[in-house]
Amino acid sequence: MPSKLFILLKSPHEYRDLDAVAALGGDDRVGVLLFEDATLFPALKDRRDELIDVADEIYVMGDDLDARGLRSKVGKEFQVIDYPRAVDLIMDEFDQTITL
């Protein structure tokens, strides 16, 4: 079963279909990588909890987080990363990427 890295770019208000992450991920290893407005997920309690429920690992782009002043909102469930680390996740650590 391939591991899957889901890429989210949209704000949690705009993207409300985390069920698709759960349904497509199933029992496989599920990573979620948050870019741009998706970095709002850690700041919104209900949506954050939903995301934690469907993902085994959650990565957040540090530059997008800092641009929005939200680094202090990131809990221990989230790993703040940079672009070189994102490349390693995509190229070496997960088998597939799926943008939702």
Partner: peptide, 17 residues
């Protein structure tokens, strides 16, 4: 939006590696 900036930054980081 910032999508093209993300694409460029990701491409650059991958090329650097």
């Amino acid at each position: 939006n910032m999508d093209s900036n993300v694409a460029v930054k990701l491409a650059k980081a991958a090329m650097d590696k």
